[in-house]
Nucleic acid binder design. Sequence first.
DNA 1: CTAATGCTATTTGTATACAATAAGCTGAGT
DNA 2: ACTCAGCTTATTGTATACAAATAGCATTAG
Lengths: 224, 224
Amino acid sequence: MSRASDRAYSHIRSMILSGELQPGLQIREEALAELCGVSRTPVRDALRRLEAELFIRRNESQRSFVADWSLDDLEEAFQLRAMLEAYAAKRAATRISWDQLARLRSHNEAIKQAISAATPEIPKFLDHNRHFHSLIMEASGSARLSGMLAQVTEQPVVMRTALQYDLENLRRSHHEHEELVMAFNNRDGEWAAAVMTAHIRRAFHAYADAHARGTEMGKAGEAA
Amino acid sequence: MSRASDRAYSHIRSMILSGELQPGLQIREEALAELCGVSRTPVRDALRRLEAELFIRRNESQRSFVADWSLDDLEEAFQLRAMLEAYAAKRAATRISWDQLARLRSHNEAIKQAISAATPEIPKFLDHNRHFHSLIMEASGSARLSGMLAQVTEQPVVMRTALQYDLENLRRSHHEHEELVMAFNNRDGEWAAAVMTAHIRRAFHAYADAHARGTEMGKAGEAA
DNA sequence: CTAATGCTATTTGTATACAATAAGCTGAGT
DNA sequence: ACTCAGCTTATTGTATACAAATAGCATTAG
């Protein structure tokens, strides 16, 4: 990670994830080069990678912009995610090791603690949630599948969806994770896949509902 | 497509697809630059794209090699393909237009003609087969889904699988396409998805069987 | 006032030179 | 003969200068 292009990649990526570079913003290679303290060459390299990962979009004339996801885009991404993760869960059910299963339980236990606190510890929830899901991908034993899923989940909007959860949805997440563990424990791929599908789709609707509430006032208030 | 990096991309890609650059071969940027008549800069650009599309792999020390797919890799790819195309078929069933349906029929009619000739016209089969499948992706209305599928289908090994088909398998393909058209005509997504899954999995096994026959003589003859 | 055209400034694309790094080879020491 | 150090060569990474293309603006004709 000491190569200049790697530094540029990480730097730009984290600026996008943190919101420092806002969706829709045009980004110029030279400006990024100065921000990263390298020349344009490694910046271009990093931009190509980020473009492949859907962090960056380019228009017809090759100008780069921070990706801006519409609600439709997000729904499409969540549908793909539901399909991919359900498939991964199905595969994982027959491949997961006892050790992995134990780690799954411990992450979900940590999630329980995070949401049982007086004030829910969202960062802790997010962290263990991420580990929980990536452990399932690992157990599914398909590098290509993991790569595809990353394309639709490692995006600022997608990662921010959980911030919209109320306590009710946090609890539901925990319980669905419990049921996934049960399905894995029984080596029941169909069960695991069904629970995972429901889990992801509920997550999307929790976000969509909160989002609708945030931008409500009917169709008139969308510009506000 | 007149930019140097685009020319380099197309050139290298077609050299890989044609087998001129064989799987496993190490490729040097400068050599490619000479072959393409451009400098290393656009070649590096092209290599990054081809790497994202799994045409190229790089080792720990950044050397590039033409991707070499094992039979396990291929099976994994076909499983993903079956899932993705089945999902696309399901979506397409409720979205396909009458015009698209008509074009689907005409491509499959052309396939029928290609395999009815005294000597089956494989290139014609492949061409219409490709159009048939991409039309379904188009009708599914998800750019992201199409992109993911391309990752696992637009690969030399995957594209070559159909070359292993005997007449029996060519006919089965045609009939499965017919059934897909019927499912679409009835707007039956579940039917379409099931037929598509079977279609892709049969395709894989047709290849795997032919491949096993080609490298048979038990475990002893693998080096031959 | 509108629209189209040409100019200018901005931004990306390409070539090339040089730096850094990894691989391969040679030769000495055991 | 074998191995490992050190050197040499091959290959990729980075910076920079310049070329090409694009967008935005102003100016002018209708």
